[in-house]
C-alpha cells in the first residue's frame, strides 16, 4: 500500500489530523534540504510536500517564487530533487513525500522516465499544479502503475462537475486551495472552507487537505477541526529565506514553527471532528 494511504490510516486510528509542511527543494541551499526534511519529521510533520523549483511558478506568490529563484540559481533540477529524495529515504522509509511543481520539467524529462525515476527514488505522490484533471489521463495512468498517488487541487471556484471529475482521478488525498489567489496570500476564512469541504466530501472518501493562507498555529488548529490535513508552505519558506545564512537558527525556528502548529492542532482535537469516513 502507498505510504500516503498508510499514513492517513494511522492518523485516523489515532484520531489525529495530518500536518503537511511544504519546502522548495534546494532552498535556501541544496545541502540543507535533506536535514530540513528530517527536522520537519521530528517536529511533527506527517507528510511532506517537496517543491520542485520552476522558472515560471504561475500559481505561486512572491515568497515561493523567490525560493524557486534561489534554488535554480544553485543548479537545482528535477533530477537533483530526486537525488535528494533518495538521500532522505536512506534514513526515513516511513514519511510520505509528495513532489509539488509544474509540468514542464516533467515534460522535458519525459513522463515515463520521470515516473520510473520518481518510483526508484521513493516518491509517494505527485502534485502538478498546472495539470488539471482534463489533461492528466496520460500521466495519471503511468503514476498508478508505479503506485504513486496523483494529487489534485480543488478550488473555491470548482463546480460540482469538476469536483466529481477530479475526485475520480485523485489518489492519496485531495488538496483544497482555500482561497482565490496564489500561495502566500491573505489569511483564509475558515467558515467558507467548511461549506466547500462538505460539498467535496459528497463526492469522495479521500482525505481532504487544506492549504494556501495558513500562517499560524491558530489557523492550523481551526482548519484541523474541519479538514483531514493542514498544509503550510509560504510561512515556512519565508522563514527559510530570511535565515538562509544561519542554518542552525533556521533549523531551530522552522522546527519551532511546525512544533507549535502540531501542538495547536493536537490540543484542539475534539471527539466530534470527523474524518474521511
Amino acid at each position: 500500500m502507498n505510504r500516503i494511504s498508510l499514513r492517513f490510516q494511522e492518523l485516523r486510528r489515532a484520531g489525529r489530523k495530518a500536518l503537511i509542511p511544504y519546502i522548495t527543494a534546494g532552498d535556501p541551499r541544496p545541502e540543507l534540504t535533506v536535514p530540513t526534511l528530517h527536522a520537519l519529521v521530528q517536529a511533527g510533520a506527517d507528510l511532506i510536500e517537496l517543491g520542485v523549483p520552476f522558472s515560471d511558478p504561475v500559481a505561486d506568490g512572491p515568497i515561493i517564487q523567490k525560493a524557486c529563484e534561489r534554488a535554480l540559481a544553485q543548479g537545482m533540477t528535477l533530477r537533483r530533487v530526486l537525488d535528494l529524495v533518495r538521500e532522505f529515504r536512506q534514513t526515513d522509509t516511513q514519511t510520505p513525500l509528495i513532489l509539488m511543481g509544474y509540468l514542464n520539467p516533467i515534460e522535458r524529462m519525459g513522463h515515463q522516465e520521470f515516473v520510473a525515476a520518481a518510483r526508484d527514488a521513493g516518491v509517494d505522490g505527485v502534485l502538478t499544479v498546472d495539470l488539471p484533471a482534463e489533461e492528466a489521463a496520460e500521466l495519471v495512468e503511468l503514476l498508478e502503475v508505479a503506485d504513486i498517488a496523483p494529487i489534485f487541487l480543488l478550488a473555491p471556484t470548482s463546480s460540482t462537475e469538476r469536483i466529481r471529475r477530479t475526485a475520480r482521478l485523485a489518489r492519496g488525498y485531495l488538496y483544497y486551495v482555500s482561497l482565490k489567489g496564489v500561495t502566500g496570500s491573505a489569511a483564509l476564512d475558515v467558515a467558507t472552507v467548511v461549506d466547500k469541504l462538505a460539498t467535496i466530501r459528497a463526492y469522495t472518501d479521500l482525505p481532504l487537505g487544506v492549504g494556501f493562507g495558513i500562517k499560524d498555529p491558530t489557523t492550523a488548529a481551526a482548519v484541523a477541526q474541519v479538514a483531514d490535513a493542514v498544509v503550510v508552505g509560504s510561512a515556512l519558506v519565508a522563514k527559510m529565506g530570511e535565515l538562509a545564512d544561519e542554518p542552525e537558527r533556521m533549523r531551530q525556528e522552522v522546527t519551532a514553527q511546525i512544533a507549535a502548529m502540531r501542538q495547536a492542532m493536537d490540543q484542539s482535537r475534539t471527539p466530534t471532528a470527523t474524518l474521511a469516513d
Partner: peptide, 19 residues
Amino acid sequence: NGHFGRYGGRFVAETLMEA
C-alpha cells in the same frame, strides 16, 4: 477542448478552470 493535434489544451491551476 482546444487541442491542435497534441498542442493547445488547458494547463492552468484549478482556480482558473471555471473561469
